[in-house]
Write a protein that binds this DNA or RNA. Structure first.
Length: 156
DNA sequence: GCCAACGTTGGC
DNA sequence: GCCAACGTTGGC
């Protein structure tokens, strides 16, 4: 069982959007970075824990707890010429991009990037590394535990 | 809107 | 395979 942090721009897909979706589930379309793709394709398993993170917004931070709900499948947007995520080099026979399913279990108070940076036990999170841009990063069991504690505190 | 950091592309 | 140019991410 592994843990992950997944970034989404709330203007595109917010945690509320996912909660309003059938099954509170979303296919994690639009990833166009090989490292993030490979996490989905090779490493993510159904049931893995996911921290749902809002990026490129007024208050970036963790806003929900989720799980991986299905293994990686071809990302349909790569085949759609009308999509922002269209990839002319991808074919149905040889898809390039994949997406796992993510089911939101609960929305939380926003645990801000600033708060995460202030916590000494989280300083080694890839999310917090200088210059990090990866939209999917691994979270250690220890980090997961610390963050669950922080999310619990802020909900009281 | 700025810009640091990083990824990708393509000429050579 | 190098690397300059360019594009993107994402916090501020």
């Amino acid at each position: 069982m592994n843990y992950w942090l997944m970034k989404s721009e709330p203007s595109e897909v917010s945690v509320d959007d996912v909660l309003a979706s059938p099954g509170q589930q979303v296919d994690w379309f639009g990833v166009r970075n090989y490292q993030a793709r490979n996490f989905m394709l090779r490493d993510m398993q159904v049931g893995d824990g996911v921290l749902f993170y809002h990026s490129s917004c007024a208050q970036p931070g963790i806003v929900g707890v989720a799980v991986v709900s299905h293994l990686a499948l071809p990302d349909e947007t790569q085949f759609d010429p009308a999509s922002h995520y269209y990839d002319p080099k991808a074919t149905r026979e040889k898809p390039r991009w994949f997406c796992v399913g993510v089911r939101v279990l609960r929305k939380t108070e926003c645990l801000s990037l600033q708060a995460l940076r202030q916590h000494p036990d989280l300083s080694s999170m890839p999310l917090l590394a200088r210059g990090n841009r990866l939209s999917i990063t691994p979270v250690s069991a220890g980090q997961w535990k610390v963050i669950q504690g922080l999310l619990q505190e802020s909900s009281n």
